[in-house]
Design a protein around this nucleic acid. Sequence first.
RNA 1: UGGGGCGUAGCCAAGUGGUAAGGCACCGGGUUUUGGUUCCGGCAUUCGUAGGUUCGAAUCCUGCCGCCCCAGCCA
Length: 571
Amino acid sequence: MSDEIKRATNIQNGTPTNFIRQIIDEDLKSGKYNGRVHTRFPPEPNGYLHIGHAKSICLNFGLAESYPGGKCNLRFDDTNPVKEEEEFVESIKEDIRWLGFDSEDRLYFASDYFEQMYEYAVQLIKTGKAYVDDLTAEQIREYRGTLTEPGKESPYRNRNVDENLDLFRRMRAGEFPDGAKVLRAKIDMSHPNLNMRDPVMYRILHASHHRAGDTWCIYPMYDWAHGLEDSIEGITHSICTLEFEDHRPLYDWFLDQLGVYHPQQIEFARLNLNYTVMSKRKLLRLVRENYVSGWDDPRMPTISGLRRRGYSPQAIREFAERIGVAKSNSVVDIALLEHCLREDLNKRAQRVMAVLDPLKIVITNYPEDTVEEMEAVNNPEDESTGTRTIPFSRELYIERNDFREEAPRKWFRLAPGKEVRLKHGYYITCNEVIRNDKNEIIELRCTYDPGSRGGWTEDGRKVKGTLHWVSAAHAVKAEVRLYENLFFAENPESAPDGGDFTANINPDSLKILKDCRVEPGLKNAKAGEYYQFLRQGYFVADAKDHSTDHPVFNRTVGLRDSWAKIEKKLK
RNA sequence: UGGGGCGUAGCCAAGUGGUAAGGCACCGGGUUUUGGUUCCGGCAUUCGUAGGUUCGAAUCCUGCCGCCCCAGCCA
C-alpha cells in the first residue's frame, strides 16, 4: 500500500480519525439517525472550565462542524441547585465563545425540562418501574450491598402505584423535608452493576435554583436526567468520559422503559496533563487556599487562566486535535501543549525588544546627542506586518546574562574583546568592564562599527552573536511576570510521605521582575495582545493589571533554548 | 473475591489478517541579523505476556499479568 493510500485510511479532510468518528460514519452509512449528527456539550455550572473541558468542547463542536448539517448544543446540566451558580454559567459561555465555538440558537438548560422529566417519572411509576422509598440515605447505602455481595430490597419497594403516585406528588408539593423520601427506579437489587440496584431518580432539596428559583423542591439525579435531556434535544451521539461507562446500561434502561427517542452514549478518556492537576476539587483548593490569585491565575489550567497567560484559542484547538481521542487513560506531556502554542504564536506575535535584567552599555565612539531611528521587522514569518522604527543612542541596555567576563566554549554572546551584533542596530565590541565598590558589574564600555548600520556589513565578517537591546533614554519601564509550571513534580498527586498534592507546588512558579525596560512602542500595548520578546519568549499584556502607566507583561512560554542545552552539556 | 474498561517507543496515537502511520520529546547536521523559525537525517525486527489457529497475527482464539473506574439523596 502506498503511503498516500495508507494516510487516506485514517485521515479525512485533514482531520485525524478516531473511534467516535468511525461509529458516526457507520451510523451515517446505515441511516441510523437519518443522516443526522447532533452532539452536545453538557457542563454543570459549578466551576470554571479547564483544558480538559476544552478537549471535550473541541470534540463535540468539532464533530458537528465536520459533518454536513452537524449540530452541537450547549446545555447546562443544572440539576443540583446547591452547587450551581449563575457566575459559572457566564464564565462557561464566555470560554466556549473565546475558543471559537458557537451553539447558535441552541443554548439549553436541563432545568427547563424539569416539568417534562416529572411527567416521565409519573409514567414510570404508573408502569410499576419506580417507587417512593422512605429509607434514609444511610440505609439506602447499606441496602445497596457491596461490590461482591448483592443488595437487598427496600421494605417500601412494593408500594402500589396509587400510593407511589400520591407520595411523589406530595414530594413535589413540598410536604416532606429534605432527605425524607426519594423516588427510585425498580430494577434489580442484586445486579452486578451497582448502578442498576434501584438507583435514585429524585431527591428532596428545598433549595433555590439559580434559574428555576423556588419552583421545585425535588431535583432529578444525573442518571435519570441526562438521557432525557439528550432524548428531548434529539442528540444522536452523547459523548462523555470513561467513568460513565458503567452508567450506560442505566442510560439505556430509562430510555427503553419510557419508549422515547434513544441517543447513544459513547465514552472517551478524559485529558490528563503532567505537571498539572485537573480535578475541580483540587483547582478549587488552589484558589481557596490562595496558592494562586484566582480561577484565572496564569498558572491555572483553566481556560480563563490560559487566556490570561497568553494562550491563543487556536493553539488550544490544535492541541486538542493532536492528542487524539481514545479510551485508554493517558497523561499527555505538557510539552505538546507548549509546542502548539509556540507554533501558533510564531506566526502571529509581533516581535519586540525587551530587556528583563538590564545592564547598561555605553558606546564610547558614538556621538553623545545623536538618536538614530533603526528599522525593525515586525514579524519575519509574516511580511504583511511590515516594519517599525526603534531609537538607537549612545547609552543602551542589554540583558545582563548576555555578557560573560569569561566566555565559555561555544559562547558567542558578549565578552571582553568580543564583537556581537545588536539586532537591527550595529556591531559592537566590548572594551571595558565597570564595577561598583561591591565589585558588581554596573556598566560596559563598548565601541561600535559605524559601517555596520542595521546590523550588517558587506565585508563578509562573521558575527554569530545577536543581542536584543533598548535605548536607555527611550525605553519604557515595565513589570514582567515569569511563570513556570505550578508543580515541580511530573505527577503532582504523588507526594512523598503521604503529603497531598500541595506539597508538590513549585515555589518558583512566579517570578516578578519590576525593573524591566521595553522598547518605546510598547507603551501602546493593549491588554491581551501577544508579543514575542526577541530571543526570550512569548509575552502578553496582562488582562487585569496592565496599563499605559504601569505596563505588565506575562510570560506565556519561553522560546526553545538550544544554548541552555549546550551549556548543560558543557558542565 | 462482583461488574465495566484499557495495555502499540520516554509521552500521545494510527493500525480492524498481508509484514509497525503521524506528532511531541530526544539525538545528529544544513540555513539563519532571534542559539527562534525552517530544512534534512536518526529514533519499535516488534505491539503487556505465554501458548494456539493461519502460507502469513499488533489484528482471530485461549490462559496469565498489569493498570483504571464503580458501593453520593454529586455530575
